[in-house]
Design a binder for these strands. Sequence first.
RNA 1: GGGCCUGUAGCUCAGUUGGUUAGAGCAGAGCGCUCAUAACGCUUUGGUCGUAGGUUCGAGUCCUACCGGGCCUACCA
Length: 576
Amino acid sequence: MSRILITSAIPYINGIKHLGNLVGSQLPADLFARYMRARGNEVMFICATDEHGTPAELAAAKAGKPVDEFCAEMHKVQADIAQGFRLSFDHFGRSSSPQNQKLTQYFAGKLAENGFIKEVVEEQVYSPTDGRFLPDRYIEGTCPNCGYDSARGDQCDNCTKQLNPTDLINPYSTESGATDLEVRETKHLHLRQSALKDELDAWINSKTDWPVLTTSIAKKWLHDGDGLQDRGITRDLKWGVPVKKGTEDWPGMEGKVFYVWFDAPIEYIAATKELTDARGEDDTAWQSWWREDKGAKDVTYYQFMGKDNVPFHTLSFPATIKGANQNSDEKWKLVDYIKSFNYLNYDGGQFSTSRGRGVFMDQALEILPSDYWRWWLLSHAPESSDSEFTWENFQADVNKDLADVLGNFVSRITKFCRSKFGEEVPAGGIYGEAEQSLIAELTKRIRAYETHMQAMEVRKSASELRAIWVAGNEYLQSAAPWSTFKTDPEAAAAQVRIALNLIRLYAVLSAPFIPDASSSLMEAMKTGDTSWPDDVEAALNALPAGHAFSVPEVLFAKISDENREEWQERFAGVRD
RNA sequence: GGGCCUGUAGCUCAGUUGGUUAGAGCAGAGCGCUCAUAACGCUUUGGUCGUAGGUUCGAGUCCUACCGGGCCUACCA
């Protein structure tokens, strides 16, 4: 048994996420967490909402609510949806929690103490009308390079030239339209990532088993141009973690907050403390996951995220950890494996939150149970390149895999047994050659499934699982208990017995992918035996002769052409 | 502009350090079965591996150029 720490990239608070966001982090993280628990490991699976920053303030203003109230409501919404998708977080925290405030301030103090913080006076654009400093991309104007009239302050979308807000001709605030913008001096803290460049480089180079997507992005940032740059970790905002040096005030930094990307990953740690605090446990409980000097030496830490989050997890957050650990007795836990994903596209284009294009998590749950989405998304996870969602593929794949291959297998054998032997596992006969060869095949496939799951090869795991389901149909077809029954009822009984046991086996193996269907099957088979099939032959004897079961309802109803067309239409345009 | 990823059957994808006739699922075709959600099983059609060169006894795999798709490029998160 091992101790496994798993974090999913934390979703931003300003709205409901779409299926592309789901499949890029939370869903594969959940798959892995469920599998690791099923194998008997001690798992800590953490996620949270990322609540700070300008977009949250603006979204709250748009909703006409105080930002803290807005975040509290949206957190509840996202938590409910996560529950709807059966994301099995041990805790779904909030980056605005008191725990994260303290911990973020603590890390900043520690970094300052260790010489990794630099104070820098810089010039920022201030909008008196908006009453705030504006991030570069919230300022638009005419591009000095190509004349495009909606160029953003960081980059022109038309000619792709990188810009400073002060380069823009006739700049204005995208929020208020105000043109009375002025440049003001303001002091900020920078994290001296450059001082840790060589150490980070060596660390990334040692991770030869990480996905190429992960290491190539990290290396690019490490070596591009002048190499890894220092990064501002504070902002002139009201909503955020107040800048402090540990518990002390930070002279000159009054009224400023930490940058979301500084406090967001720290929330992984803080969320664990939120959980153990809620349980009434002391600090040793969360520290045993996050402090190698306090019991976390045997923890293996896995992170899941979309490719857009990779730089922060491979460089910024590790810089925070390494910087805090330097010249210190404290040894904070560094990530051991980063699984990153490409994007999921929607019907020939991108999912778009702003344009309401594609399927959002709440809408998905309105039209189908979560298992349909979980199965399809995971079996098409964008691991090697961007992948594509189309309604035709979704309908065809889900109907075939879930309804025909798995659902119908359960249906055919339970109904056959009921009509010939009644609703209990039949006695008589023995497992012969055909059964032994089934056991041999399953053993081979289950071992392969375990290997792929351990390696977080999501698509390969799904296809191996599907092959395991298919093996049941192949067996039934060749054993043909409906024929055997006429001449040799004892032999038919043994065939039915092993097939009924396959249902429980499938429920156990499939639970990480389709947890609801899995528990329906366990319920139908009237068993709570979720033990992993280390010994397949033993697993296929788990339900003994005489064990009662019931014929389950249709496990997966098929998606009709009418449904598909209706959804296709509904989700083509703008979200209502 | 620079960097990285990607292009394999109608569709979605596998193809280990280069090594016989390039694989799987779906879709299509044929056959079988009748327990089952018109489900299942078996067989089968289908690819000059983006294009053009090169290295090699041998290239889907390595190199170069080009074409197409995607991402990143540091103040959105």
